[in-house]
């Protein structure tokens, strides 16, 4: 699989990272180099192998349905770049 500039731009857009033409150009060989290298995994016969789901064999613990949190609006908003009237503010979204 070879990554071209259009793919780099598509990936950057999906990842919400603005990149310039130059950066896109520079990333093409860099990503190709890395992607090409990880593709050696294709050599491994993994038929009948399950993908790992838990690093240390373990299953999910569940918590009880009890309210133990919330009511911490000051903490929630404390680091906000822009908070108004108890909300986070963002540029107007048109839906």
């Amino acid at each position: 699989m070879s990554v071209d500039k259009a793919t780099v731009e598509k990936i950057a857009a999906l990842a919400r990272i603005a990149i310039s033409e130059d950066e896109a150009q520079r990333l093409v060989p860099e990503l190709n180099n890395i992607i090409g290298w990880v593709e050696q995994l294709g050599e491994v016969d993994t038929s009948n192998v399950e993908p790992m789901t838990a690093v240390i064999p373990n299953t999910l613990r569940l918590r009880e349905d009890v309210v133990t949190d919330g009511n911490v609006r000051d903490d929630v908003l404390a680091n906000a770049p822009q908070a108004e009237h108890g909300f986070f503010a963002v540029p107007k979204v048109i839906e």
């Binding site: 009237h85 909300f87 540029p91």
Partner: peptide
């Protein structure tokens, strides 16, 4: 979207 002319608010 209706609380501010240029901003949307997140709850």
């Amino acid at each position: 979207h209706d609380q501010h002319p240029t901003r949307s608010y997140v709850d």
